[in-house]
Design a protein around this nucleic acid. Sequence first.
RNA 1: GCGCUCGUAGCUCAGUUGGAUAGAGCAACGGACUUCUAAUCCGUAGGCCGCGGGUUCGAAUCCUGCCGGGCGCGCCA
Length: 558
Amino acid sequence: MINVEETLRSLIGGALKKAASDRGVELVGEPVIMLEKPRREGQGDWASNVAMQMAKAFGASPREIAQAVVDRLDLESGYLDRAEVAGPGFINFFLSPLWASEVVAGIRRQGEAYGRCGIGRGRKVQVEFVSANPTGPLHVGHGRGAVVGDVTANILAAAGWEVEREYYINDAGLQMTLLGKSVQSRYFDLLGRSDAAPFPEDGYKGEYIYDLARELVDRDGDVHLEEPLETSLPVFQAHAVEAILGMIRRDLKDFGVCYDVWFSEKSLYDSGAVREAAEFLKKRGFAYEKDGAVWFKATEFDDAKDRVLFRSNGVATYFMSDIAYHKNKYDRGFDLVIDVWGADHHGYVPRMTAAVESLGRKAEDLRVLLIQFVNLLRGGEQVAMSTRSGQFVTLRDVIDEVGVDASRYFFVMRSCDSHLDFDLALAKEASNENPVYYVQYAHARIHSLFREAAGRGVALSGEDVDLRLLDTAEEQALIRKLAAFPEEVAKASEELAPHRVTFYLYDLASHFHSFYNAHRVLDAEPDLRRARLVLLDATRITLANALGLLGVQAPQNM
RNA sequence: GCGCUCGUAGCUCAGUUGGAUAGAGCAACGGACUUCUAAUCCGUAGGCCGCGGGUUCGAAUCCUGCCGGGCGCGCCA
């Protein structure tokens, strides 16, 4: 399919140079030609402000230069209908019906591949997301991170990156001990010996801890009652981590999220990677000892203060293992590493970036997506959540109540750095306030129409169809929206902005519904009918591909 | 106190390398099915883009000072 932007750029560049030489103006270097999509109707399909930027070099008014460029445009290709000067000196370009028919035909040729592009150039990117401690079930906030990470990965893959998804398991450190002790205490409690193993301060109080203890009672009976607490602790801890991790995997899988790698923090210690990373930093002069602790020279980079790597008691900090982890990531050959974190960790970004630079990578080789909190509502009322008491709405609850499609859509609907109001009642209602159904309905409607067409013996064919018959305002607007999909994917991948896809989808569905209400398809004249069926097929493909990026079903009927 | 972040229509939000008259959805109001799915469409109304300065041909966008919300600031994770 033709690349409109490239074609336009070279057309404009040629005309601009001609205009310059005609006026005896010397251009310094290649002019950078900016193209954008005008927002308003009547301002063409593309616009360029090149005349305004050239005002100084030409010593002429922007409008004058714009006109000179327009007069020298080569319209031979046939894709460009006309160009006109507008406003303070914009040049508006109007694409031709020939271009529009090429778009539609191209989409059907590409099918599932439509929307993909090559800007990733096969580079390797890792997206690490969720990575919740295996100390309890995933809650709503994790759900948002899960979908944002998963959809971002989908988008990057569509943009030509080689993508790996990874879950980092924090299975080392104090929290694990605390988890084990919590289960241990509940175990003793269940067997009527709560006095022997008091519940730890700041222990995990959720009901699921009792469930885990009960499983051990069923499995091992009361044998652990007689053992010293230190002896049985690893048993409780191992069972808890294994069981909880299993639950997390199931929840994510049922949510449509699949990982390539589950990476254990503990393995970094076992393999000596933590020690090696520390040595690496010392050798490069980024680590030093003070007050009995080992410090990282974060201030060498762009962080406010130096950070502790090893406490004076010799124990590594979480930050230290994180450095080892990121070193491991880059050693695995990733060109770009993306971390998806909760927004409450934003203070951690400068030091992690500093660490990445100390490893010899550029700051841009790490991108952190900070996910703001989810405000859970039900029918406009805030749902009370308290981590302390162990009472919170789990991701599983949300999936069970709302369903996967609506949940996923709602979780990526907003930009990451915006708080998200998630109304459970709204998300599961087939309400007109619910954008998921609006978009899915568009897809189902097209399939319904195809079924009706088949029933009437009308075949969908790409042969001998004159797509230039699609000349109504609604058809042209729909085609332009279809044509924008690949660049939308490209932008979403560059900005790491998965929410863009939901906005695009809604817009596309809206253009389809408008067309559908304004025009008849099956009752049209045979030539027009064939053209419209082809247009709807292209729409169906684009809707399905975009929904696919979100991991949301594209139903054939509703 | 320092730092990050957000502040756009009544509500929820788009608007990212500075561009033309700031856009959607919902809510409100008024219309459209004997028809391929009305889970739809069409129209009306709704705005000191938090406030004040600055940068320039041009600012919701960049800089700066305030105001307000959220979050962070440990040899915790």
